[in-house]
Design a protein around this nucleic acid. Structure first.
Lengths: 144, 144
DNA sequence: CTTAAGACCGTACTCGACTACGGAGTCAAT
DNA sequence: ATTGACTCCGTAGTCGAGTACGGTCTTAAG
């Protein structure tokens, strides 16, 4: 634990903006090391990892509040609570996963169909995404 | 195709705000039916479906621009283009899917571990999300 | 010591996606 | 004809997640 990065170095290392780090600190997602008398804060690997974690979690659709909870799990002693939160997130993730799978299938079908069927899109995507029937709405635009 | 909803009814039916519909129209995601001489626009099932489509796609992480493209695929005659776009989206979806699967696994592991291990969280989530090592940073908070 | 890069900090701006507001017009019921 | 709910429309405000700005302070190099 060398605590060797300045905030700028940390930012570079993690591929985020300095301002973003400071923003996360304000939001309580990463703690700021106390600054040595009159000086400049130093950050270590743990911070870098935390940043990576945050970005990953975000990329998966968790918002900062949720990420914060996730991080609390990680830090937490409260296994009971961790389990509860984890289970909730897990359910959410599985739901997302299910939908995404349907989309994948539909999209794959669309592309395949397109391939074999040049000229006519019947769009299985629409079917997959909640609508029951074929649409073919001929782009009822206005702008006139 | 009864074109029987007013915008308010459509909104209720689709579970969105009237303003949201108008916003989507401005953004070009749904066309507005021309208004009968001096009157009020009427919407039909196609609009309702389109709204559902939008919400679903959004829930899966597509932004409005992307949704618009998706909708263009649907509307489009241009199969060639549809295929191209579709393939791109498909790749994105698969990437997401892969990540999400990893998270699911990790989260499931976390919850399971928690269960069998009451009192101590080692957090496989962290491992899954880009960090290599166990963290256990004891919440280096600041806040005075 | 001077200087320049960068830290520190508060405040303000941006961007996407809405959401609210206010005034004028429409329409069905009374 | 009047009322009240609702539409239409433009403009403005909100919220989440940053990003930028500007002034002061630290710190390393010359």
């Amino acid at each position: 634990m060398l605590e060797s990065y300045t905030i700028g170095a940390l930012a570079r290392q993690a591929g985020v903006n300095v301002e973003t780090i400071r923003y996360y600190q304000r939001r309580g997602l990463i703690g700021e090391p106390r600054r040595p008398p009159g000086g400049i804060r130093r950050y270590g690997e743990t911070h870098a990892e935390r940043l990576r974690f945050i970005r990953q979690a975000q990329a998966l659709g968790f918002n900062l509040e949720e990420v914060k909870e996730l991080l609390a799990l990680e830090d937490g002693q409260h296994c009971r609570e961790a389990e509860r939160l984890g289970a909730i997130k897990l359910a959410a993730v599985r739901e997302r996963l299910g939908q995404l799978r349907r989309v994948e299938r539909a999209l794959a079908a669309l592309v395949g169909q397109c391939h074999s069927n040049a000229g006519r899109v019947r769009c299985p995507l629409m079917a997959a995404l909640g609508a029951g029937r074929t649409i073919n709405s001929r782009k009822q635009s206005s702008d006139g």
